[in-house]
Design a protein around this nucleic acid. Structure first.
Lengths: 345, 345
DNA sequence: GCGGTTCGTCGAAGCGCTTCGATGCTTCCA
DNA sequence: TGGAAGCATCGAAGCGCTTCGACGAACCGC
């Protein structure tokens, strides 16, 4: 494997000149630059990443800490992909650190080994120990998701409140007033999992603000649980005409339960999946109308957000919240009016 | 950030002694070892990964080249996850290199920068340029999937033939003789995408071997295409009683088309999904019987396979083929016998 | 025509670690 | 009891690159 020394020898210049020619940090005479380029080409020179990092004290590597990328639905996959691609565009590599959220100290130690210039965290909880540890160790980071207070903390996230607002606006505009929300599991809510907590809060507040009664349920991530919750919801409010789900697997159960009761979608009950992974709407019949998670955009933003801290020359990236995007399917229609829709609460 | 020199000073020993204490490459007196350990603890020392790699000429990093991890179904996600975890167990980190299959030269150049000790390739085609380039550059690799000839080439893969054999055995045992196979798209077959080619070949051969007529179709990866193919298959062979699909998205279309024709599953037609991602069976009603892809196991094996080349001290990992695992659902039953099942071809 | 700049290049000092050979002690057996 | 062998440790030479200061040459204005 050719080294920079070989290139310098072949080009008849000093090692430092080659280095400057590569980095462009100092002016090089065009003729010299060409000789160097020729030498690099004939030798097939590729600079050694480790030596470069050691000397420059920048590894050009970002680390992504993730708890899980498997599972149905490519939300996380889409996100990871976007992160990797954006990193590459920016000249960085991406390493995967599979750590659970409670392994903050292992994360800190790995970070201090200098393999990565900064870390990206996903699935951040309202009170996330990892953030505290990383801040204490002065490790640059950016999070996808938000801790409780996020001012002064670099983050990008889905705008759950805006997503819910758009969802309700859409449904209420079609005459729906009895609307239920199927959330993630109660374990996730209790663990302070941001999406579950924030979206539920937004639902309650927005429904109440419209003078409607919020019917909100947690639900394990499975079709079976989705079926059970649907049955329970329908029993609780027989006048229900719309269900918003933020639980992809449960949504399949919602469909199944509605079908088994002869409740057609959307003429009987409208269903809207929010924060979904791409393509999931087409898996059901009738195709589910969704508001899909802006995973790819979040991934790119997260990288930009982190890089803007590593390199002050970059334009700083403010914290951003991105709402989900409506993807029309065929699961939403006007509210049915079996016994006159307006009803006093 | 404390360095090894700081540790040596605090412990009152030389730098090399600290290094040997950490690596265990030479014996150190227990008392000395303890002093060093104490020094490391008080300083919070973490060895610098870059310096270590530069000096030892081993980065302890593996690279995973992947074309796509997004998309419905966690097959690839499951695989990536397993790879990352196994790597961590073995003391390696995993970096993601998002390259398309035609970017062999970029891959080569990156590999020659010495960031990774070896690379893992997924979605390998029968004739894969990347393999040739990597071999020419003497870059250690392991592939998930197989090129045309795989003797002497480190690989792990799904055993498509065995999977298909088990699938047919199961169905024929239930009296099915008119069986169709829904493959991936013709583009993928033409591109020499191993799973599509090998499985189709196995289907043809095994059906013919049993004296049955193989009805094999390519199909775009979408529910819509799945519907169309199902209609065409049923028109071609009205006596069809079973469909094997290796196309998760299309399978949803298969269900929809059967439902719209009033063909119940499994009493009218049995459906078996092969090489599926985990959990996908539960998304349909009735739950799809599947043979799911051993993604996690393949991921672990692939890492072991690669590591056994990097470190000759490890026990070598032979090329392995792992069949998919049957996961019972409710989509398979005995063949219907509308007009007497045995029929001469 | 002389001090002050700017340009293009060089040499050398690291970056923080690994690893080879050497060294001074002990220990052991003939 | 002396030489070989083993043990524990040290010093120094890199690994391949970046970057700082320096230096000669060409250029500038007054």
């Amino acid at each position: 494997m050719a080294t920079i020394t070989d290139v310098a020898r072949v080009a008849g210049v000093s090692v430092s000149t080659v280095s400057y020619a590569i980095s462009g940090a100092r002016p090089i005479r065009p003729e010299t630059r060409e000789r160097i380029q020729a030498a690099m080409d004939t030798l097939g020179f590729q600079p050694n990443a480790m030596a470069r990092s050691l000397a420059s004290r920048r590894s050009l590597v970002l680390a992504l800490i993730y708890p899980q990328i498997a599972g149905i639905g490519g939300t996380a996959g889409e996100f990871v992909q976007a992160v990797a691609e954006r990193s590459k565009e920016a000249g960085y590599q991406l390493v995967l650190w599979p750590f659970r959220a409670d392994q903050a100290h292992d994360i800190r130690n790995l970070a201090r080994q200098g393999m990565a210039d900064g870390v990206l965290l996903m699935e951040v909880c309202l009170d996330d120990e990892r953030i505290d540890v990383l801040e204490a160790a002065h490790v640059p980071y950016a999070m996808i998701g938000r801790t409780r207070d996020v001012t002064q903390r670099p983050s990008v996230d889905i705008d759950f409140a805006a997503t819910m607002a758009k969802a309700l606006e859409h449904l209420v505009g079609l005459g729906h007033t009895h609307i239920a929300f199927v959330n993630h599991s109660s374990e996730q809510v209790d663990a302070g999992y941001g999406p579950a907590v924030r979206t539920a809060a937004a639902f309650d507040e927005l429904m109440t603000g419209r003078g409607l009664v919020p019917l909100s349920r947690t639900c394990d991530d499975s079709p079976v649980a989705g079926r059970a919750v649907t049955a329970e919801i329908l029993a609780t409010d027989p006048e229900l005409t719309a269900i918003i789900t933020m639980n992809e697997l449960a949504t399949f159960g919602v469909y199944a339960e509605l079908a088994s009761r002869g409740l057609a979608i959307p003429s009987g009950v409208s269903v809207l999946g929010i924060v979904t992974s791409p393509g999931v709407g087409t898996l059901s019949y009738p195709p589910l109308t969704t508001m899909h998670s802006p995973g790819a955009e979040l991934g790119r933003l997260a990288v930009d957000c982190l890089l803007s801290q590593l390199d002050p020359a970059r334009t700083p990236v403010p914290n951003q919240l991105i709402p989900c995007v409506l993807e029309p399917g065929m699961s939403i229609g006007p509210a049915r009016t079996d016994q006159g829709s307006p009803k006093r609460p």
